[in-house]
Design a protein around this nucleic acid. Structure first.
Lengths: 203, 203, 203, 203
DNA sequence: AATGAATGAGATTTCATTCAT
DNA sequence: AATGAATGAAATCTCATTCAT
């Protein structure tokens, strides 16, 4: 129930690191192609080309594998958001906002099955602190950015916008939409509208 | 996989109807309280107070039960949307839009676990035609409403708005928000902004 | 860890009761013939002639099966001891003592592997209250009997005698001894000696 | 099953001897603290501070480790019994008997978990010849001692007494008894009674 | 119509042991 | 001599579904 979601061993040798990578990639591949319910530890091991015993050397439970993937994805998103909202680039608020929305689209549009599965996972597992912290850090970063842009109630706004964007991008992905530029324009309209930024040039 | 998702029998007698209702309510209750992965057919039967054999008299598979619940929910949402967007009430576009958003909040905010589970189910199952048709009908109805309001690309806009609203309301529910009026105001801001309706009186 | 050791279902139909009996008998048979470490749930189901699923309908864990067997054995021993030490039969202390020793031999000598396994189990499992209570009841009954016979420190003496007797009978069984009369005479010598009863006629 | 239970290598070098000792001590420690079922070869290696590969350099199977521990314990008991029953010390039969019982208590009372596990092991494994021979040697030594004291059927008596004593001491240990002097008095009563030695001064 | 006993494929996980380095 | 990554048979247990009554 409160089983550890952390990896079991820190792989020391190069071979071991390759094995861990293979397992994570295999699991992600299955998630992308078939979804959560088709992902079994046996299948992960098989796709990764390792034995089931090896898988369990590095991950104490199936959930630990999934948690690791989710953590990786979130970590990556957080870094993209940091880059998009970084200070001192000479860019204005709106330019940064654009890059934020672009990052969200890049993060989500490619693999809707994976994104959906991970999101469902998040509500499913009593996720360990670090992954929850990443989620909080993402919201915090966005809220900070909004606050510097003069937005009222930045925490609430960050939550609203992140969730609305995710919903919209996810639906577009499921509907098979691939024109990122068009999606970006609509997403910007949504965000700017919520923030009462007026017409803007990016329209 | 290609098993029929329709109920096996058309319950004609009162007792049979009561049994079907009990099963659906039991399943919904489990979904609300514990989520999809804790829902087993044996548990549904137990909670419903019928035997597992009886359950399978009325539903050919577990998925059929879930599909029925999803169908019911969607049917209800469709009707609420129809009522909100009905013509000839003397109301204007914006008033109807408000009622649409209110319907969405009413539909989603109460039971986030249930809503999440059903949404995940939707992406999970090869859902049967009728349920998919309901989803399409909902989008179509919203698109028609938007078109009558002069919105360009109504299909795309309907999909965007429904998805963004769902994401935002869902996140608010998970975050424990209960102030519907405040949520409504922000949702309206989102929708009006996307539709470029200008400031408005926010109702 | 603290999983329930009680049966899962109370079998209502005759068939179900027969199944439970078959499972318990199969487990006991494996214990007698091969010992604890060869006993697996799959083997128990196979020997019982039921499917593994059926086994788990009635017993939540492997330990629950073993606990039930141990409980049954103890219950039976307790009843034999009660009969042996019952009041109002007109018998004297020594005659009852003889019957007590006879009961111990009858209980233990036949199936040394079973007895050893169950004893080891006892120290292994955090056995549930009822089984522990039976153990205590047995000691209490013997202690009460000794007290009525004028023995000092009856609790301590009961524990000593029960344990010493069990050890001796167990060793005799393992060594292949089958002459119960001879074993009985030595056991009586042990017990009478410990109790300082002098030569006695039963020698 | 028919695998050799002897160590694989004769550790000639000091380091190798230290490794073997570390492994045996680690296994014993786990046995004392957690019992047989928690003892795994990987855990033994970890606790011993060596790699699993190294462990298998010195012991062909897990059982070989356990057999070695049992052999050591038995060897030690045999030596204690030899010392207790040695001739030419000017002591009489009863004094030697006392020292025998003291040796048994010293051997068994301290670590009931270890003792239980080893005893169970004995009945479990097809133990290798040397360990069985030690067991026989112990009984033989006790039987010889009893024979010199004029006891009839010395082999049988040795088996009975050793087993009864072990049972009694084991139960006292499990019950948490720590007063060795009191236990010794009762043990002597048991032994003297069985041997018909009369009241005695109980030392 | 209803029951509930029974099924068994399949999932997760462990652990003694091997072998390339 | 030592390491530790890798193996895979085998164990426990679940749960959707069937079918005799």
């Amino acid at each position: 129930m409160t089983a550890p979601l952390h990896p079991r061993k820190n792989p020391r040798q190069a071979r071991a690191r390759a094995t861990v990578t293979a397992i994570l990639e295999a699991a992600a591949r299955i998630l992308v192609a078939e979804g959560l319910e088709r992902l079994t530890t046996n299948r992960v091991a098989e796709v990764a080309g390792v034995s089931i015993g090896t898988l369990y050397q590095y991950f104490p439970t199936k959930e630990a594998i999934l948690a690791e993937i989710l953590r990786d994805k979130r970590q990556q998103l957080l870094e993209d958001i940091r880059a998009a909202t970084a200070e001192g680039t000479g860019e204005g608020f709106e330019a940064r906002l654009s890059r934020l929305v672009e990052a969200a689209i890049a993060h989500q549009l490619g693999q809707p099955t994976l994104a959906r599965s991970l999101e469902y996972l998040d509500s499913l597992l009593p996720l360990e602190a670090e992954t929850q912290a990443l989620k909080a850090a993402i919201l915090e970063r966005v809220a900070g950015f909004l606050a510097r842009g003069g937005v009222a109630r930045p925490d609430e706004s960050a939550r609203d916008l992140v969730a609305a964007l995710r919903g919209m991008i996810d639906a577009a992905g499921l509907a098979g939409e691939t024109d990122r530029a068009a999606l970006f324009r609509r997403a910007m309209r949504l965000v700017r509208g919520y923030l009462d930024l007026g017409e803007g040039v990016s329209r």
